[in-house]
Design a binder for these strands. Structure first.
Lengths: 194, 194, 194, 194
DNA sequence: GACTAAACGAGACGGTACGTCGAGTCTTTGT
DNA sequence: ACAAAGACTCGACGTACCGTCTCGTTTAGTC
């Protein structure tokens, strides 16, 4: 990680860290990545500016660290015993995230940061890999059930599922219809079957 | 358009506009979206800062305007009489763009801008729609040849092709192998056949 | 005079001149000398900026020209047949000018301009000389009546009268009481008698 | 005072303050009040612009603060045991100030500032009050010697002395002759005798 | 339970860029 | 062909953050 791990991480330091991450996300939600100011983050966290600079070299490093610890790292997909239904569920969760007034802006901010900063890119990469792994259980289930061939790469299937969702919503800016989501699920399954 | 169209668009104004767009792209290439400074753009274009602010309300508006006029709006896919080969060609062109030392940074910058600013998002959306339309001729060809059913939506095929490329390269940050590209092309075709 | 006298002073030119002077004074009243902007004056006068620049080289020159033509050049002191009463009347008129919501700010503006610009200083000098001459009739009256010796310099008496008024009100910023004014008048007379 | 007194006035801050005041006066001497630029003052003082804005809200406040601390606050009139001679000495000192290539422009600038800004006006008022008090010892001396009645207001005498000097030189722009100065002294004394 | 180094709070600073405003000067355009 | 108005250069404004520094002060962990 890019953060300077404090040698005395207990007590106040831990409290501050938590407050800073919270403030960071709140600021990202309110003002976006371009409008981010470490001064405001510090003020909002009730912490002095120098505390931030002491612990993270750049704002991207802070974002990377926050992304690594904080959010929805406990998410788990629904498992219904049917691959297509499960995949649609996963996709819907992704889309719901984009629409969420908190998660959406944070996602966009992380993405924007990743496009500018290698450190943030790495953190985002790790975060997404984790999410993929988490989601991939629905594919593993399908393999166990014999719905898919044994050699299938579960993460690849998930990637194929979410790629068009990200592309349409975040990049082209167009909405994803129910049919679009179903289509994405079908593409992913079709790929896995070969 | 978000730009303030000047009421006297001849002569110097036109020359300035061109110089500004060029300077903007050069700066984006060198410093990225986060490191963009309108002061530097102005200096580089040999123009005074106030000229920029007079004509575009924000940096995003400038980027949007530049994106709308300038780059590779003349690109055309190769047409070999074979859909899969053509699609791979389109995909390869996209990937080459990401790798290009000029086009790549500009793409990333536009994307980052779009994630922060509705104006930029709209401009990017229009730009990509144009690119899709342009690329879609290879699908239309295939329909004409009878390779694909008549009702096929050509743009949808292109989107299915490029979505995983963008997702892997720009979002997860991972490379796209030749096999990955071939996969994307094959799946796009197969799905269109149904 | 520093103004460029136009070669066709009739019709539109004259109307514009009047409008410009009016706008100038109005702006001075509203924003003071430091806040003066020729752009606003031009807009307010319904005239293009270049018209101003064509006719006056600097804002001070404009102010000087306006001062020479416009204001209270028709003022006349009251003549009561009693020097002290007349002088008090003159002094009161000066003080009333300082307090007037229109004349006061203009006076201060002209003074400030004169402190910065020789052109304005000259204009102010001429203006004040004119005012002195105008006021001096009350002294001439007194000489004619035999109240003062024949060799008395009427303008010097007026200057002795108004100097402390200007000094207290405009320079030290302190008010002038009725007794203060009476004092000034009395001393001016007494000194003239010797 | 309008200045923001820094909470740690030692060391660098104090050095900066002094350098800023010096630079301010130097700029006023060279360019006058209207030509004052805080950017140039900062550069000249070897200090960054934001340091100025952090400590003084406006240029007038800076001028006020500088006026309050810096100049000739140690001036003392000559005392010759003769009121008229002393007063002429005081008046001559005032006139010499107007002619001085350093003090003159600064005086004019302060006066111009005072005409535009209440803060500067107050500072000037305080400065002049101090000068008056300082000069008034020559009047007190005369009272002690019995030259003037006991109830005489020493400061009023000084004001009466300097008023015509300011009026002629700074306002009407005309020179003050030796006779004019002697006249002013006589007026002041005459006033005090009643 | 007291000590010591780590972590923090606080204020000031030099610096870059912002976005705005006004001063003056050119130059395109419409008539 | 020429004046009017639009567009420009230039300098400064006042603001916001950035990242750094120097001091004290608090607090966590250790002996």
């Amino acid at each position: 990680m890019t953060s300077t791990t404090p040698r005395r991480p207990g007590g106040r330091t831990a409290r501050n860290t938590r407050a800073i991450y919270d403030a960071l996300f709140a600021e990202l939600v309110e003002r976006g990545h371009a409008g981010l100011s470490l001064e405001r983050v510090a003020t909002r966290a009730g912490v002095h500016k120098s505390t931030l600079y002491r612990r993270w070299p750049t704002s991207d490093a802070l974002l990377a660290a926050a992304l690594a610890e904080h959010p929805r790292n406990d998410w788990t997909p629904e498992r219904n015993g049917d691959l297509e239904r499960d995949l649609i569920g996963v996709g819907q969760a992704v889309l719901d995230g984009f629409d969420d007034p908190v998660v959406g802006p944070i996602s966009r901010a992380c993405l924007a940061a990743a496009l500018d900063s290698p450190a943030a890119a790495e953190a985002l990469s790790a975060f997404l890999a984790d999410q993929h792994r988490r989601a991939a259980v629905v594919v593993t289930d399908a393999i166990d059930r014999g719905e898919l061939p044994a050699g299938t790469d579960p993460v690849a299937v998930i990637e194929r599922l979410v790629a068009p969702l990200y592309y349409r919503r975040l990049i082209t800016g167009k909405p994803v219809t129910e049919a679009g989501l179903a289509d994405a699920a079908r593409v992913a399954i079709r790929l896995a079957r070969d």
